[in-house]
Design a protein around this nucleic acid. Structure first.
Lengths: 341, 341
DNA sequence: GGCGAACGTCAAAGCGCTTTGGGAGGAGGG
DNA sequence: CCCTCCTCCCAAAGCGCTTTGACGTTCGCC
């Protein structure tokens, strides 16, 4: 069923039918109702390619996901982010199109997406400190929102981020207040902007008390359970074991906890753990009493905000680029306690 | 840059340029090279909407993700599946379009996707025992592949699934061999086909030894860490605690382990745990020695297979519907041991 | 009763591509 | 030398929609 057939069926012109369905005022209310009813009955939906060709818009948002051996972008955090964004898209009639791309082809992919014109805007995931994608997309004139920020870029761009620096500063202070002095940092890859900011917060808090960070207790890697376990195990069995861990993701924190338990250390008593918690749907940090003391910021909310911002930018391209900094909550859980003497 | 401009630039007709770029034999090799070079230099990519309109194909595959309060489909398993599928799509020039939908609008969404024609095929996620989507999509004449199966549907359809029944039967046998007699089943929602099959495997193994399943030790719910913890805690503190757990996902197994440890029980000695392991990228079951004894089947591979099958179905619509049953590996880890006396 | 505005509708152009049905020009065969 | 057959290219139609510009009708008002 296409527009022509529907128009013939209704004994109307295609123009009138199109206007009726798209809410234009030039058609009488009677006709509009008649058209809408027929469209529903005959199960007519306009062909989106044809519509897109005619309007110049495609009603779709692109997410490109960098994949590499080193870094796994299709991770649980990503899943929750797009769940949030997808809600908003669905409510506004937008589709979400995703492309995976290796590191090599990335720039080409963005250009080609632009040229092929199959999305009206994009979300940039996993920005690095000095991320060339921002300049590229600005160049291409494609509306985009970055999930996170890119510290070394001063060109204006829209972003949604949680205040990683502040969160980790508070978390570090909390551990310092409890008397901990050797605090390990188990961070994500530090070329990722968010990880770099977390480390900054950690170092800022230490410096404020006149403490220098010890490179031996800081490490960065892919945030998996295994990585958390491996690192914590190594540090705890080392010469000067830390009394506390500051961890960048709940999943890695679970690995840290496992390492502690391997060695007979009880979390919250023998060793303290603070983690960042993205508040994922299937990986909650406990029910009434949180398992881990944590800095919490919902990545699903971030997805919702990013999507909303992007849609508003598409609607009003001239408006200034919106930005949104989300503060993380600090949640006291069972995994922290005074430093052992 | 569009085809007309490129053709003008080259002093050729649009036809010739189009043919040159699409590999038709009617154009001389010289011209073809000249066109391809110019296209690259001028950064031309054909507009995909226009191309789609002209060819009737959209070079995109749809994934619709049911969301409900009860069941979170955008979960880690889903993420890995689309990572696998995405690889294949990317290699074949297909886009992946995802739509979230509440349970209510599901049928309408499928119809509308069909009518709008913006995908060439679909992947069906999370089939239930008696899943109406299969009949619907067969009706609509849209190529599709199901990730999983729908037990009560006899109409032919293409699917990729891992042999859940067999895997859980083997796992149960392993526990029985170790002397366990009270084996708890911590399953996913049993209206989901895969969960139902796992339970079937579990019951089959018990029955083969003349044991009846005890409803008190079987439960089903959303596979989260919290759920695993809550259920295990309740069972272990109950009147007749199980000596072993058979768990449907690694993440829930981690919750079960936490519950055991809460009560001072060591996994592998005081209580045994076998889990299904989807072999997710960021949630590996240990490095050299697996943490959990597990039935393992890579959901990323399943995604790859599903995508490949779908693309081949689109290429050859008349061929019979392919199916693929993947056998799970049985991995011996540190979480199982003889039943305590 | 006649005029202009407002209303409801339409035919046709155009979005950027593919594809059909030729057509010019040169090579080869009779 | 003419005719046929390739080879290489082209003009134009069409995919399904929106949108422009224009065309009857009807109505209110002088």
């Amino acid at each position: 069923m296409n527009l022509r057939q529907l128009a013939e069926h209704l004994q109307l012109s295609q123009t009138t039918v199109s206007r009726a369905l798209n809410g234009y005022p030039e058609v009488s209310e009677d006709t509009r109702q008649r058209v809408i009813r027929a469209a529903r009955e005959l199960n007519y939906s306009p062909n989106s390619r044809a519509k897109g060709l005619a309007t110049g818009r495609s009603m779709a948002i692109g997410h490109v996901i960098p994949v590499s051996d080193r870094h796994q972008m299709v991770n649980p955090v990503f899943g929750d982010f797009i769940a949030g964004a997808g809600e908003v898209y669905a409510a506004s009639g937008y589709d979400m199109v995703m492309s995976l791309v290796g590191e090599a082809g990335e720039e080409d992919l963005y250009r080609s997406i632009r040229a092929r014109g199959n999305v009206d805007g994009m979300v940039v995931h996993g920005p690095r400190l000095d991320d060339c994608r921002i300049a590229l997309l600005n160049d291409l004139g494609m509306p985009f929102v970055v999930h996170g920020r890119a510290t070394r870029i001063e060109a204006p761009y829209a972003w949604v981020d949680s205040n990683s620096e502040r969160a980790f500063e508070r978390a570090t202070n909390h551990l310092l207040d409890l008397g901990h002095r050797r605090i390990a940092l188990v961070n994500g890859h530090e070329d990722m902007d968010f990880a770099w900011r977390r480390r900054l917060g950690y170092e800022t808090a230490l410096a404020a008390r006149g403490l220098a960070p010890d490179p031996a207790t800081m490490c960065a890697g892919e945030m998996t359970e295994l990585y958390g376990h491996e690192v914590a195990r190594r540090l705890l069995e080392g010469p000067e074991p830390p009394t506390a861990f500051l961890v960048s993701s709940l999943i890695a924190a679970i690995g840290v906890r496992r390492a502690a338990q391997d060695l007979g250390l009880a979390p919250g008593r023998d060793v303290s753990i603070v983690t960042h918690d993205d508040d994922l749907g299937y990986m909650k940090n406990g029910a009434d009493v949180p398992i881990f003391t944590a800095t919490r910021s919902s990545v699903r909310d971030a997805g919702r905000h990013a999507a909303q911002m992007l849609l508003s930018m598409i609607a009003a391209p001239q408006a200034p680029r919106p930005t949104r900094l989300m503060e993380a909550e600090f949640i006291l859980g069972a995994s922290t306690g005074p430093a052992p003497i």
